[in-house]
Design a protein around this nucleic acid. Structure first.
Lengths: 256, 256
DNA sequence: CTCATTTGTCTATTAATCTAGACAACTATA
DNA sequence: TATAGTTGTCTAGATTAATAGACAAATGAG
């Protein structure tokens, strides 16, 4: 009995990948996280017992425990001796990428509390790739902002923003306003659009995992976006890393 | 000396992640693949010797060899005794996701030869999620097409397309025309638009890896798209898996 | 031909992961 | 209180991943 996407209705096969270069506890952690966000464990708020999970994935109970330990560190579940393992967080947020996407607008309503922190700022000479995207020359000096976006205290995005010269006061304005949109407005950029977005996926490096409160080796969604004036002159290049298990990217026709 | 995105210019640190749940040979394979597509190994067409790579990543030569073995199986490199390791394929394609994306249009110019194969087709009862997306009821019978897209013989996309009832002849039309766009046209759908796209990333399961000619454990980009008539009535739900190391998704303002 | 360089293969060892089983500690319920 | 069900912890062993070193085999250059 299969449904239209081919997923088996009666769970048995559901096995795990050996010798694939990804350790069993990590595969199981990833799949449990996904299963939680798909609501597969009912709405009791509890996980099945460890022995049941071990049977489901065809591994030893200790391997499941290693996976649950990681998920507990991430704040997804919490185990209590004698009682069971509770689900603390189930949802996966959707980050909209459309023509006029702003961080807080897009996620509003999906989380209680949104923050957007400036980690550091500097000016730096840009490389050829960024220069091409912004219509500048390699070696030009640009403002660079390192930011972290959080929802309900949990890191959701880690971005490097590069601004064309002429927007050199952006760091101070951002520090004052706490928002790129407002900072740009105060610099005389009332409106801007997303000219292009490229989406990639890869494993997190150690430092990125630490910044996003992930276990190392987690999967990142990475976007390379160019923003510009409504007349399509580019002025901002942003490289953003999202934890793939906490967020998905979404494009809707009416947000385009 | 760092550039604007913080990447070190003089390569030394570049170490690898131990105890992160991803084996060293896989991390190294992923990073070599990425380095190739970024052109980091010059344009001689040759990789650095295994000993140099081992030093660069801080691992044993045998670990590098395990990574190169995987890359050779994927067709990215080829090693020749006494000579060295050649780079066979460097580019990463960009799959456009815009308002009017069609497989062959979008990739035209990025590969010599594009194919789009129908693996199988069937009718099946749809689940709630798909039903919601298409404005139908769970349990409705829909045409389901399983397809594989290839560029120059290499698998690039593995999709499951679900079509609303009323388009029930789609499988035969597709088999005849070899294109979803043409099949829809022959069913009286001259034009359609992409209503929404969600992008996720995760590890490939064994079967998916086999279908896409990946080593198991590779990272997939997964899109969940809903297509509809120009008046926004949805009629098609597509779940597509892309190998993240062969392709990236791109949105351009003029393709929207 | 000779030599330096590079990949291919082999053996051995160490370290990490996964399995297996037993039992303690805790919770909830009858 | 007794019991079943669950997580926590410990020990031991098997399997796999990574390291280390040596040398063979092929290539290209002088």
């Amino acid at each position: 009995m299969n449904d239209a996407t081919g997923k088996a209705a009666s769970e048995k096969p559901s096995l795990v990948e050996r010798r694939g270069g990804v350790q069993l506890w990590r595969q199981i952690a990833d799949r449990i996280r996904q299963a939680i966000s798909l609501g597969e464990f009912g709405d009791s708020g509890m996980m099945p017992p460890e022995t049941a999970l071990a049977a489901r994935f065809g591994v030893n109970r200790h391997t499941v425990r290693a996976a649950l330990k990681v998920l507990a560190q991430e704040g997804v579940v919490q185990s209590l001796q004698g009682k069971g393992t509770m689900i603390l967080r189930r949802e996966r947020l959707t980050y909209p990428i459309g023509r006029r996407t702003r961080f807080s607008d897009g996620l509003a309503g999906q989380a209680e509390r949104l923050e957007f922190r400036l980690l550091s700022s500097r000016t730096a000479a840009i490389g050829r790739e960024i220069a091409d995207a912004l219509g500048l020359l390699a070696g030009n000096e640009c403002s660079v902002l390192e930011t972290l976006g959080l929802a309900d205290g949990l890191p959701l995005s880690r971005a490097t923003h590069v601004f064309a010269p002429g927007l050199s006061g952006i760091a101070e304005r951002f520090a004052a306003t706490g928002s790129i949109t407002k900072a740009l407005m105060s610099l005389g950029v009332p409106d801007y659009v997303r000219l292009s977005t490229d989406v990639m996926a890869r494993h997190a490096m150690a430092e990125e995992a630490a910044e996003l409160a992930l276990s190392p080796g987690s999967i990142l969604l990475e976007t390379m976006a160019v923003n510009g004036f409504p007349d399509r002159r580019p002025f901002q290049y942003s490289l953003t890393r999202f934890p793939a298990d906490r967020i998905q990217l979404g494009m809707r026709i009416d947000s385009v």
